[in-house]
Write a protein that binds this DNA or RNA. Structure first.
Lengths: 335, 335
DNA sequence: CTGTTAGCGCGTTCAG
DNA sequence: CTGAACGCGCTAACAG
């Protein structure tokens, strides 16, 4: 490929000025249909592609957004991403999907890189950053939305799951089934949603007059194998536990495997409740009782919020604060 | 936020010229350590971020690459993406992860959008495009690599799985176990890897002296539910089938569910073999016999190839053609 | 309806 | 070791 076709090439070929070509490209008014068609033909023939780079330099907008998630391989986040991307594409935006791999310093690095790319806005999902760093990371972005993370700050949209309520529902379900010694595999300690779920868990126990025990809520990375390990440790240390509430479905699947390995039958010897309701939840044996979370909607709502903050012609979405409700799905792992 | 901090602001503040600042940013030689440190300090204090947009306009490089996959929610592709992104990040690149949702027109649209973003190169994974469209789509990109897709064209890197061999291994395993009527849920008809896997399947049957039957290889979208439907249809139409070879593990899980619904026990009444060996394969009951594919490596090798074609200082990787080997993992669904 | 002028923020010359 | 001028490809604002 010799040299890229530029607007000037098209203009010369058509015998018009740059502006005329520019107007055709951007579908602006004030061009006769005849010239418009003629120029479009030349554009197609030459294979001209407008440069978003050059355009971005002058308009100060890139048509690009950032979406930062802890782990793209987790079906929870890939579905959130689907929701967000769908809305973004429909509005003509592209999105950088960035993985932090549950790592704070990578999260900071990613945010900086997105700044340098001059994205028009960012969605930060389940950020693990401390408040100070988070504010700094957001400050230089033209618009931003948080998912699964609270922050007291004007100018940032927030989309949350009612996780305390979810944690409470899950735990109450286990209590109603007669369980009195309920452990929780609590997920990452710096996860906001994890903290909320624990609150719900504790509140439910307290309401039932069951004394809480710190030992019963060990943290763990939110994946299958760490969940399995944590479950083995907890169930070995505390054989009196008859039920486990898990930070998410991946951890719950790990717990399932742990029970199998320990010779504990699910749900008879140990009931298990997950969180998220990812597709995997109904594919394992027994199927997981879990808190359903509207994952796609989490992403799409966040993106709508972001776009409304980005495109000033659109009516700003009234509330910058959306709370979505979880729903308990009762299946065989904790009937 | 009032106005972005620019290089000029830094230069003015430091009492030096733009060039001096530029040299510091890009770690170029010919700056005294003293000034370098002094300017770095000012950069940090002002929160200056170099604009990749402006830089891209002059250098003609964006530090951005495209990665196009059919379905980001499929664990196979998310792992390929992990491999590719890991290599890209290590080399200082960002990547646009783009979903086509198994749709050809979206695939074309995505490729065009990537052109306009002026990415430095593209990896196209499991492209469904016809040869003509594919060549056109690649032509305007400075560098490109194909995964799971053959194409006779100089200047494009290719990373493949030996899928014909994989299909053969899977089928031979079933034949060795005594099966004589083996169906195949063949996946998308326009998938190159699907076509290769069918070839392997047919070759194995032919070698064993088993007559092939077109009816036994219905295509289906590569997901759980379509796989389930296809399996129900096939097993209902041909109850004499005692084994199914599936395009991928998602389809195989669908087949598993179909068998459960039809009251067929796996593997006794119907053996099932999948493909890919995604994490889910060992989580379902019974665990799937499947062809393991080095998914992460598929992505990382492809990205290495792409970078070697993008960065002219690096030694070009000799062969632009990499073939990775699958490996049969024998588990309970087809012992 | 179409063209002209100016500059977006930076890196690449080439001179000091 | 440092700086001044120029242009990357495009659009905004204003003329005609």
């Amino acid at each position: 490929m010799s040299r890229r076709v530029t607007m000037a090439d098209v203009a010369r070929e058509a015998g018009v000025s740059l502006m005329t070509v520019s107007r055709v490209i951007n579908n602006k008014e004030g061009i006769s249909d005849a010239t418009r068609r003629r120029i479009q033909l030349i554009i197609d023939r030459l294979g001209y592609r407008p440069s978003d780079i050059a355009r971005g330099l002058v308009t100060n907008r890139t048509g690009t957004l950032g979406l930062v998630v802890p782990d793209n391989a987790n079906p929870f986040f890939s579905e959130v991403a689907r929701g967000a991307e769908h809305v973004a594409y429909a509005a003509g935006y592209n999105v950088f999907l960035c993985n932090t791999e549950e790592d704070k310093s990578r999260e900071m690095a990613v945010m900086r890189s997105l700044e340098e790319k001059r994205v028009d806005g960012v969605i930060l999902c389940s950020s693990r950053l401390e408040e100070h760093d988070l504010k700094r990371a957001l400050a230089f972005h033209p618009a931003s939305v948080l998912i699964n993370r609270q922050l007291h700050e004007e100018d940032v949209g927030i989309v949350l799951i009612a996780d305390e309520r979810g944690g409470r529902m899950a735990t109450e379900h286990l209590i109603r089934s007669g369980h009195r010694c309920i452990g929780m595999l609590a997920g990452p300690e710096d996860s906001y949603s994890g903290q909320q779920r624990i609150r719900g868990y504790r509140a439910a126990l307290a309401d039932a007059g069951i004394t809480c025990d710190q030992v019963l809520t060990p943290p763990c990375p939110p994946k299958v194998n760490p969940g399995k390990e944590a479950a083995i440790n907890l169930l070995t240390a505390r054989p009196d536990i008859t039920a486990l509430f898990c930070y998410n479905d991946l951890v719950a699947v790990g717990a399932l495997q742990a029970c199998m390995e320990l010779g504990r039958r699910v749900p008879d010897d140990c009931a298990i409740v997950g969180y998220d309701d990812i597709p995997l939840a109904v594919l394992v044996t027994p199927p997981l009782t879990t808190c359903h979370v509207p994952r796609y909607e989490l992403g799409s709502r966040a993106m709508e919020l972001l776009l409304s903050r980005t495109e000033h012609n659109k009516p700003q979405i009234k509330s910058g604060h959306v709370v979505l409700q979880p729903e308990l799905m009762i299946r065989a792992s904790a009937p």
